[in-house]
Design a protein around this nucleic acid. Sequence first.
DNA 1: ACAATAAATCTAAACGTTTAAATGGCTAAA
DNA 2: TTTAGCCATTTAAACGTTTAGATTTATTGT
Lengths: 345, 345
Amino acid sequence: MRKTSIKDIALKANVSIATVSYVLNGTRNVRPETHRRVTEAIEELNYKPNDIAKSLKRNRTNTIGVIAEDITVFNAPEIIDGINDYGDRHELQILLVNLRLDKRIGRNFGDTDVYRKYAENAVSELLRKQVDGIIYIGVHTRDLTGLIDVEGKPIVYTYGYTQDNLSIQFNDEQASYEAMAYLVSKGHRRIAIISGLMDSIPSRHRLKGYYRAVTEFELPFDPLLIKMGDWERDSGYRLTGELLDLPEPPTAILSMNDVMVVGVLQMAGERGVSIPGELSVIGFDNREFSDYLQPSITTMGLPLHEMGFQAMESLYQLINGNQVHELKMPECRLIERSSVKDLHR
Amino acid sequence: MRKTSIKDIALKANVSIATVSYVLNGTRNVRPETHRRVTEAIEELNYKPNDIAKSLKRNRTNTIGVIAEDITVFNAPEIIDGINDYGDRHELQILLVNLRLDKRIGRNFGDTDVYRKYAENAVSELLRKQVDGIIYIGVHTRDLTGLIDVEGKPIVYTYGYTQDNLSIQFNDEQASYEAMAYLVSKGHRRIAIISGLMDSIPSRHRLKGYYRAVTEFELPFDPLLIKMGDWERDSGYRLTGELLDLPEPPTAILSMNDVMVVGVLQMAGERGVSIPGELSVIGFDNREFSDYLQPSITTMGLPLHEMGFQAMESLYQLINGNQVHELKMPECRLIERSSVKDLHR
DNA sequence: ACAATAAATCTAAACGTTTAAATGGCTAAA
DNA sequence: TTTAGCCATTTAAACGTTTAGATTTATTGT
């Protein structure tokens, strides 16, 4: 037996299907008596609207496509949570496509071209499903400009850079600067930095923040304090070794992510260098484990939820044909824990 | 201007819309010449099919609803990745609803009733969108039986127990038993266990596995070695204290999750008890951080990806009206790291 | 009581597909 | 040359809604 439709309830309530639609949507006045009859019929027949039909007619699905480069990477779930949060409040639903790049290509996604085809597939799937718009969640990546063609549908990127579309990001340069400012406020002046892969745009921005701090606070500038890491633990380990080997080692290290801090801790442990006693360290990301390490590490927390939320909000404006108002960049927040020593004390 | 539809291409190729549909779907023979004309028109007009219309007619969306109790909880992303993996291979798409229970109710979700309304909302959203089936991803929870009514649509649960529907789980009892067997193989006999919350079904199963090991391996049975934790770090910390205070402390601890192991490590550190030197520990979950702790911890890894994959597979069978074949339970795998000492050496 | 107006309801087309059934043209057998 | 049978194609209805515009019914003011 067919599921009950608007037609059945029209029949039962002895009105036209139009009237039923009007009471369902409140789009026109209907006499209280009629209204009652209709709602009763709805009740009795246990009618459930069919959004597919509605979407077809309205040419609007209230569904947005979310493309995640890899949902198992730490940033994605929180961002999606933010997207979801906004979606809940505006009756928008999420069609999720996971590119699984981490599993398919490996951690540090190579050339953009390699995964363009995955992205294109995802987009065309979503377009066939008539999503109202798309959010693309990157990871630490290179420029995504021109990556995909969405056939005129609105798209906003987050956690990934692009020049031809809206892109929600936090201010990497500022975040890095603030981390430095914090270290300086604790009396540190000889501060090293361990970067992520340099083909990643955030890495470059964060390095700029470092330079700015060095300049503004008139810290001793020493190229030997600048180390190029690759986001992975081992590079943190290795580069900390190099740093400790310096004739004049730094008193603090700013690491561009928490994972590399694990390596920092490990090397320090092996060399018998106490943290934060002899060496302070600040990470980036505020990963769950940064609170579990010994010592727990001070880190720059990313506004992931907020980014997702704001991406969705902007997209919603775009979908409704509104200009997107001034974009406030979500801000990072330093999470103070126990890996930084206050040299003033 | 309207998007180009099957109608436009029929016009251009000078055939009926039915014919177009036939070449699109390959559902009937069409003369090569006609076929060419149609595909050319498709090409020229850059036609993109509209799955919404197709779904309406076919009464099948090729979309499945995924309800996650909380997508930011560690198990969800991997499970979704598994779901996605299967989905990719069968052209099934994922409509995601995140209940955000962790944020809305707090970590140890209280009474089932409290979140029933969220679950019900999610389900009715999904049903309106005409999903072909639903997967429900729980966290460590109590019995979900009777939680929601899906109006006859297929549903499968994973990482959450239920009696009235299909539910994909790993064998907690066996996993726990195997962890014990491993410890025994390393010469441990006096083994303590720190459980999760006891209203959680996995906790109970894992405890059973512990008992079975104690019996089968004829280990000394001592109720003092059985500690009730609550999944959180602090309980690991506190209970380890109690265990170390015992007149005859255990040589090894089996913790029902990795988070509590963090507490174990911390207490051991404070008491100057070396791990694994004087105390061995095994966790559960194989969280990313278990490799980052010092020492890195040996832990029972969960087959999360596989669970998602299998949940989707079963659902797919159900959707196609097939009986679901014998369910092979995905298996946990012990990840050997450095937190267990081999007493034989 | 009767227009004139306002309010409620209905008719019918449309959204973009799929598909059963009908039609037409061709081939091959008689 | 007819005819049966097959193949390719078309016709038309249907999926479950929304929504202009037409029509009916109710409410005014005189």
